[in-house]
Design a protein around this nucleic acid. Sequence first.
DNA 1: GTTAGCACTCCATTAAAATGAGTGCTAACA
DNA 2: TGTTAGCACTCATTTTAATGGAGTGCTAAC
Lengths: 350, 350
Amino acid sequence: MELDERKMKILQAIVKNYLETGEPVGSRTISKYTDLNLSSATIRNEMADLEEQGYILQPHTSAGRIPSDKGYRLYVDEMMRERETLLDSKEKQLDDMKDFLIEKVDRVETLLQNMVKVLANNTNYATMISTPQFQNNRVKFIQLSSVEEDQVLCVLVLEGNIIKNKIIKVEESLNNEAILKLNILLNSTLNGLTLDEINLSMISRMTGQAGEQGTLVRNVLDAIAEAIHSENNMEIYTSGATNILKYPELSDSEKATRLIGTLEEKKLLTSLISDSNGEDDGRGIQIYIGDETPVQSMKDCSVVTATYELEDGLRGTIGVIGPKRMDYEKVVETLKTVKDQLDDVYKKIT
Amino acid sequence: MELDERKMKILQAIVKNYLETGEPVGSRTISKYTDLNLSSATIRNEMADLEEQGYILQPHTSAGRIPSDKGYRLYVDEMMRERETLLDSKEKQLDDMKDFLIEKVDRVETLLQNMVKVLANNTNYATMISTPQFQNNRVKFIQLSSVEEDQVLCVLVLEGNIIKNKIIKVEESLNNEAILKLNILLNSTLNGLTLDEINLSMISRMTGQAGEQGTLVRNVLDAIAEAIHSENNMEIYTSGATNILKYPELSDSEKATRLIGTLEEKKLLTSLISDSNGEDDGRGIQIYIGDETPVQSMKDCSVVTATYELEDGLRGTIGVIGPKRMDYEKVVETLKTVKDQLDDVYKKIT
DNA sequence: GTTAGCACTCCATTAAAATGAGTGCTAACA
DNA sequence: TGTTAGCACTCATTTTAATGGAGTGCTAAC
């Protein structure tokens, strides 16, 4: 099953060439392209082998070969060299970007929205980014305040300065003293806890202690649970959906509709969000080629995702969606840089 | 410049037919289609006149005619009958929708997001909706709380239960008493005011009264100003962007990219938001045909917008973007219903 | 003023032909 | 035994030509 060195080189040449041109590549091209100094006939023989082994395929007889998913996979795993040379200029470019991003940014959301746009412009693929998850972040501060007769405002601050709030209806207005008491109760009990740590016995104890205001406490806790619960919170921003249309193999009406539709219906993207199952390269990068994708509607694409991590355990996912023949090297490199630098930018703006 | 009745009828027939088929319509079709009982030759003569007057045009010689922007405009202004007959079923349909929407909706944002999706599915065009504006809403409640040594949380509640918050850095930690005082000062001064009413002299007086905490008050006021300022607040949700691809006249790569890109880059849509300049039909409906649009990139489309109004003076815009040959009647009818009912749904969920 | 008739235009569709990139296979070569 | 030149063959793409038909404009007659 292993490929000898020559076959590897030929496969690599095929993939590289196809990434560049998007056209099936023939034996003659390879014969000239590589330093192997082999005639096209020899290449043809090797190609026949490679096809038999499933690394490349022919769109039709008498066409050149294109990489199969398996071929891309081998390329990505074994042959892709990191572009150290490019790294410097990329660093610089991203430094510029940082300045650009910081300007006028004062909320994480805005930062991420800008980031995802920059990434889309940079790569010419579609991009997505999820707001950080914070299930495991701890409660820092809770406050109830009476806003109107029958309305209580509940504000919740989590580690990482995530603020959630909700207006809760109450039957009868509360006096200041009652509210003060409740605040003390809530803070002393819940501060420093994560959602997972707020369990049933705790809840019943608190509702007990709250006496008359038992139902209110209950409502507050519900509000917290709801506020903190992942699916209500994770937002996904996308950008560059129209980049899809730049690639003929994706731009026919049916595929484009499916893809752009998926990007629009952000919920469908959640399965791309860092399930952090093993398959990454040790630096939080994951590559899904074709059918490997967890999002069915993207089976004609490749998806590259990276997990970024801000301080305070805030963690999210950033991803690039493009044709299978995307420039994996560049994308991976860019994502790594983005991921590394996101933290910096974030620190500067907070 | 006025058209006689017969020409009107012919134009109307052309537009209607073109809306249905999307194909240029010829004289023979009209001759049979209308109850005018005129031969195709006569129709041809009239068509020649209509073309000369700019109401219709020929894609090429030996093709039928299609309406020009001017033709559409006349149709929309003068010929479009409201479909009273359909109204009943539409009402019902929207009632169903209401139930669907209320389920699990507990924030206005979610309501609007669902609404815009339903609208897109219903019409088969692209849709947009803006979150309500609240420049003129009054301050209901302000509260500062010390969250950490150097961080103060500022919560602002406006009429309509719009909540804004921001964490403000301070030099030195504030004791409870100081915060209490500030809260009283802020509330007593600002409650019941709109942003416009918070003027310079008021600010300087307050910073004076705040003594040591002058800068903090300044920061709080800045935060309010920023929170309340329109461009930071208005969000626009879109849906059904891919519906664009259903219409051949818009689905070529270039146009589609431009349009979907515009929908993605929501900021570009702000000029569609209820500048409420006169040109509406008295019920908050506006129709932009082709070049009439304030958004340059949509000059190949028509856009229909409606202003909706929730209670408490919350007001936003909902819009439909489609090909010029969109079904204006249906769209206008649907928008009217949505606009009327949005308020109801909103009341139910709050 | 209306209509029938006719020549003309031009797009769209189909069919046929030319092109050419690329293959697989065979036989000769080192 | 691995490599290469040569050649016949395949098949998507492009080009060209032919055909059909929807629709018009104009003229002459009603």
